[in-house]
Design a protein around this nucleic acid. Structure first.
Lengths: 134, 134
DNA sequence: TTTCTTTATCTACCGTGGTAATACTACCAC
DNA sequence: GTGGTAGTATTACCACGGTAGATAAAGAAA
């Protein structure tokens, strides 16, 4: 199953975010961005190596440094996480998922309207039963 | 701390679902429902004991059987999962989350319309300027 | 009573995320 | 050279989900 294991931990996500926004960077850079106070340098380095073993990132050598870059795209991760979320927690029911999303936090009127627009877009973009040509 | 550790694994979710729909039941019952072919009896039993240690379930003794019942409600689990999903993957952006949800699978027109209704409801239920809270 | 079956307990293992100290190594400055 | 420094490699540990075999104990059946 290729659509399988894209389940990431918190630290892994943080690291990937740095790589996504920087394109690539060294261990020290990553460490600086995610917070030297929160994590030891070696923690980040170890995690990066583990992530490389899992083919989430790769590195090239630049002088003495390892310059890491992501092998997975942000879209792939978020898409996979979204699909897994719906399947795992709501057994595939998207409406149940969104319903819970709305219940789980305060949603501003602006957000609600943005969501409305989002859905309206989808309705236009994907007319399922449309005998007449566009 | 309501925002505490309510992160559940796949098997734990399956087990909880059985307990939620049955109210309570013995280890054998759970095992039967989630699939004797997929899991060993002891796997379920062990997991139930681990979950009891984490206060997700509890049991009472009935003859020689352990009758387990849930200590967490389905709503609490799904709510917590939803909140964590948005925070973890989309750093709190609900619109980004819903957007990805819509992209991550085929959404029927019926579902889209159900979502529209869902949002319309929320808009009515939460008027923009209202100093009084419930 | 002896055996079979049900049921729970104990123990142990694996993978993985997370955490980090420690050790090695190569370079730079002196 | 020697010593600090920046960087990687090694090693180890914990927690937890998942998995299950082996074992024990309590009834039920023979």
């Amino acid at each position: 199953m290729p659509s399988g294991k894209l389940r990431l931990g918190d630290l892994q996500l943080k690291i990937l975010r740095v790589l996504w926004s920087s394109g690539e960077c060294g261990v020290t850079d990553v460490h600086q961005v995610i917070g030297p106070a929160k994590y030891a340098y070696t923690t980040v380095a170890t995690m990066l190596r583990k992530m490389e073993a899992r083919k989430l990132v790769a590195h090239r050598v630049e002088g003495r440094r390892f310059v890491y870059y992501p092998l997975v795209r942000e879209g792939a991760v978020t898409r996979s996480a979204a699909a897994e979320f719906v399947d795992r927690i709501f057994r595939g029911s998207l409406t149940a998922a969104v319903c819970q999303l709305l219940d789980s936090r305060d949603v501003s009127r602006e957000e609600l309207e943005a969501l409305e627009r989002l859905i309206a877009e989808r309705k236009e973009a994907d007319p399922p039963a449309r005998p007449q040509g566009s």
